[in-house]
Design a protein around this nucleic acid. Structure first.
Length: 576
RNA sequence: CGGGAAGUAGCGCAGCUUGGCAGCGCGCCUGCUUUGGGAGCAGGAGGUCGGGGGUUCAAAUCCCCCCUUCCCGACCA
C-alpha cells in the first residue's frame, strides 16, 4: 500500500478524551476514530490489525476442530423470553439494547447463547452428530454504563465466541479443555501473558468458568496470584487459608473470663464506618473496623435466610447465587434489624449462621444488637453465638494465605480478555429443540460450554502492552503491515524514487505486506510516523545508502539496524 | 446511578474573573526555497464559541435549563 493513498492521518497531539496509552496511540497513529462514547470506527490500519487478531483466533479454533458460523446480531425478543433473560434487559447484569422493527421487537445481541442453542439444536438430531463446537466472530452490543479507555470497554465490540455441544457433562468437559487450550495458544501468539483464573459466572450461568486475565496497568480487574504454587483466581472467587489460631489483625483478644456483653447506644449509625466514626467522636473508646463484626443478612441460593459474619475490616465475598436481603426479606425476618444486625440468638429465629474463618480467631466482637440504634460489644464465639458453617467468605487481599499452599498471595491488576464457561444444561433445558436421541434411544439434552474472547479489546490490550514513548510496536502476528518502506528525498533524486519504487514492486511480488511511504514529506516526518505506526520492520531507501547500493533495515522492537544490499533486499525481506 | 472536570477552526489550547473586532500553535491549500529525526518564507481557506432560553445598547464572557465528553466510584458477559 502506498501511504500517499492510504486513508490515514497521524496526529501530533492526542485528543483530550484519550487517557491511556493504547487509546492515545491508536488515535494518533490513525488506526481508530471515535464516533460516540464507546463507539469506534476502525480505519484501514485498524481493520488490518483486527483482521490479524481474528485470523489467529480462527486458525487456532479451526485447528481445535471448531467450525465457524455467523449468527444474527438482531435477535427476536421472544428468544430471550424463553431463556428468562429478557427480564434482565436494561439491568446492569444485561445492559441490552432493544430496537423496534416491523417484525416486532429485537435485541441487539449482547451475547449469543440463546441463538446458538436453537440454531445448533435444530440441526442435531442424534448423539452420533456430537460433539460439535461452533464459533463466530462478530459485533455485539452492550449498553455500557461507562465506556472507558478507548477500545478497552465499549458499547459496540467485536467478539469471538465459541459454543460446544456434547452428550453429557464428561464430554462437555473434554470440549471445554480443548477450547481452553486453544485460547491459551491464541494469547501466546498475540504476544500476551495470560492467566486463566477461576471466576464467577455472572449473568451467563453455569458452574465452572475461567477468566483469561492479562496483567496490565489499565486493567479494571484484579486477580489473586500465588507466586509459589501458581494458584490464580479472580478476587470474586478466590479463597484463602485461615489457620484457626492465626491472628488476622482484627478483633480484640479474648480475656479470661470473657467480659459481659456491653450495650452501646449508637443512634442512627448503621454500618461499620458510621460506628467507628461515632466512637471516634465520643472519644472515650477507640474502635476500629477490625474490632467490629460485619453481619450481613443473605438469601442463599436455596432461598434460606442466612446470616453471614465477616471481620469488619474485610469485604464480604458472596458465593454465586447469594444475594443481600431486600426490604421485604427484612419484613419477614424481624429478628434481623437492618443496620444493627448481630448473630446473638439468631438460630432460634430459624436463621442459619455462616461465618468467615476470620471470625474464628480468638476474640470477641462488637456487632449489631438486633435492636435499632444499638450495638453490643464483648460478643464471644460459643458463649454468645454459634456458627453453623465455616468458610472463606471475604475478598482475598494481598498478604492473605494461599488456599492451596499456604504462602502469601498478591493481587495483580489485569484486563479480562476472555471468559469461558461450563454451561451444562442452563440453556438446553429451556430453549426449544435442544434435544437429541441418545445412544440408548432416550431423549438427551446438550451439555454446553461457551467461550468468549474480546477481539476489539485485545487490539487495545496488545497496543497497551506493546508500545514505547515514540509509538506502537506491533508483534508480527498482528501488525497491519510487516515492512514500512520509506523513501527519503525522492522528490529531488530520481535515483531514489526509482530504487524505492522497484523495491516496493519487488516486495509486493514477493508477497510481503508492505506499506510504502512514498509521500513528498521530509525525512523527519517519515521517521516519526514510522515510529508511531509501529510496523515491525523499517526499510529506508535514501541517497546516502544508494551511493553504496544499500538500503537500511531497522527493527522497531529492538532498534537493531542492518544494511542490505539493494540486490538482495527483496529476498531477505521476503524470508523474514 | 453517585462524585468531579471539560465543551471556542481538523487536533491541542488561550480569551470568560472585570460583557465591547473570535485568537495562538500544529495541521490544511497555493507559490518559492529546503530535504537523514515532526523544515523556512510569503500568501490563503477554515467558526452555530455544544444547544435553547434569559439579562443587556451589546454575550464566547453574566443567569437558567438541556445535551455531549472524559476521569473517580458503583457495576460488568
Amino acid at each position: 500500500m502506498r501511504m500517499s493513498r492510504l486513508l490515514v492521518r497521524t496526529l501530533r497531539e492526542a485528543p483530550a478524551d484519550a487517557e491511556v496509552a493504547s487509546h492515545q496511540l491508536l488515535v494518533r497513529a490513525g488506526y481508530i476514530r471515535r464516533l460516540a462514547s464507546g463507539v469506534y470506527t476502525y480505519l484501514p490500519l485498524g481493520v488490518r490489525v483486527l483482521h490479524n487478531i481474528e485470523r489467529v483466533i480462527r486458525e487456532e479454533l479451526d485447528a481445535a476442530g471448531c467450525q465457524e458460523l455467523l449468527l444474527p446480531a438482531l435477535h427476536p425478543i421472544e428468544l430471550w423470553e424463553q431463556s428468562g433473560r429478557a427480564d434482565l434487559f436494561g439491568t446492569e447484569a444485561m445492559p441490552a439494547m432493544v430496537v423496534h422493527g416491523r417484525g416486532g421487537d429485537f435485541v441487539l445481541g449482547p451475547t449469543h447463547e440463546e441463538v446458538v442453542t436453537v440454531t445448533v439444536g435444530a440441526e442435531i438430531e442424534s448423539y452420533r452428530q456430537l460433539p460439535v463446537t461452533v464459533y463466530q466472530v462478530q459485533v455485539k452490543f452492550r449498553d455500557e454504563a461507562r465506556p472507558r479507555f478507548g477500545l478497552l470497554r465499549t458499547r459496540e465490540l467485536v467478539m469471538a465466541d465459541a459454543y460446544s455441544f456434547d452428550v453429557d457433562k464428561e464430554a462437555m468437559q473434554q470440549s471445554y479443555g480443548s477450547v481452553f487450550d486453544a485460547y491459551v495458544r491464541i494469547f501466546g501468539r498475540l504476544g500476551l501473558e495470560v492467566f486463566p483464573v477461576e471466576a464467577h459466572s455472572g449473568a451467563i450461568g453455569g458452574d465452572v468458568n475461567h477468566e483469561f486475565m492479562v496483567p496490565s496497568v489499565v486493567g479494571e480487574d484484579h486477580f489473586v496470584q500465588c507466586a509459589s504454587c501458581g494458584y490464580a483466581a479472580n478476587v470474586e472467587a478466590a479463597e484463602r487459608r485461615m489457620e484457626p489460631d492465626l491472628p488476622s489483625g482484627g478483633g480484640a483478644a479474648a480475656t479470661d473470663p470473657p467480659p459481659a456483653l456491653v450495650d452501646h447506644h449508637t443512634p442512627d449509625r448503621p454500618g461499620i464506618a458510621q460506628v467507628v466514626a461515632y466512637f471516634a467522636d465520643q472519644g472515650d473508646q477507640e474502635v476500629t473496623p477490625a474490632d467490629l463484626m460485619k453481619s450481613l443478612a443473605i438469601m442463599d441460593n436455596d432461598g434460606r435466610a442466612t446470616l453471614l459474619l465477616v471481620p469488619g475490616d474485610r469485604e464480604a465475598r458472596l458465593p454465586n447465587g447469594w444475594r443481600l436481603f431486600e426490604d421485604e426479606d427484612f419484613a419477614s425476618h424481624p429478628s434481623l434489624v437492618k443496620g444493627y444486625i448481630g448473630p446473638v440468638g439468631q438460630q432460634q429465629h430459624g436463621i442459619r449462621v455462616v461465618a468467615d474463618l476470620g471470625i474464628r480467631r480468638a476474640g470477641m466482637w462488637m456487632t449489631g444488637a438486633n435492636q435499632k440504634d444499638h450495638h453490643v460489644s464483648g460478643v464471644t464465639l460459643d458463649r454468645d453465638f454459634t456458627v453453623d458453617e465455616w468458610g472463606s467468605f471475604v475478598e482475598v487481599e494481598t498478604g492473605d494465605l494461599c488456599p492451596r499452599c499456604g504462602q502469601t498471595v498478591g493481587l495483580v491488576r489485569s484486563v479480562e480478555a476472555a471468559h469461558t464457561f461450563q454451561l451444562g444444561y442452563r440453556y438446553s433445558e429451556v430453549m426449544p429443540g435442544s434435544t437429541f436421541v441418545a445412544e440408548d434411544g432416550s431423549e438427551g439434552r446438550f451439555s454446553m460450554g461457551c467461550y468468549g474472547m474480546g477481539v476489539s479489546r485485545l487490539l487495545a490490550v496488545v497496543a497497551e502492552e506493546h508500545h514505547d514513548d515514540r509509538g506502537l510496536v506491533w508483534p508480527e502476528e498482528v501488525a497491519p503491515y510487516q515492512v514500512h518502506l520509506l523513501s527519503l528525498g525522492a522528490g529531488r533524486s530520481p535515483e531514489v524514487a526509482t530504487a524505492a519504487d522497484e523495491l516496493y514492486a519487488g516486495l509486493l511480488a514477493g508477497g510481503v505486506a508492505v506499506l510504502y511511504d512514498d509521500r513528498d514529506a521530509s525525512p523527519g516526518v517519515k521517521f516519526k510516523d514510522a515510529d508511531l505506526l509501529g510496523l515491525p520492520t523499517r526499510v529506508v531507501v535514501g541517497q546516502k545508502g544508494l551511493d553504496r547500493q544499500l538500503v537500511e533495515w531497522r527493527s522497531r522492537a529492538t532498534g537493531e539496524e542492518r544494511e542490505l544490499a539493494m540486490a538482495d533486499a527483496v529476498a531477505e525481506l521476503s524470508a523474514d
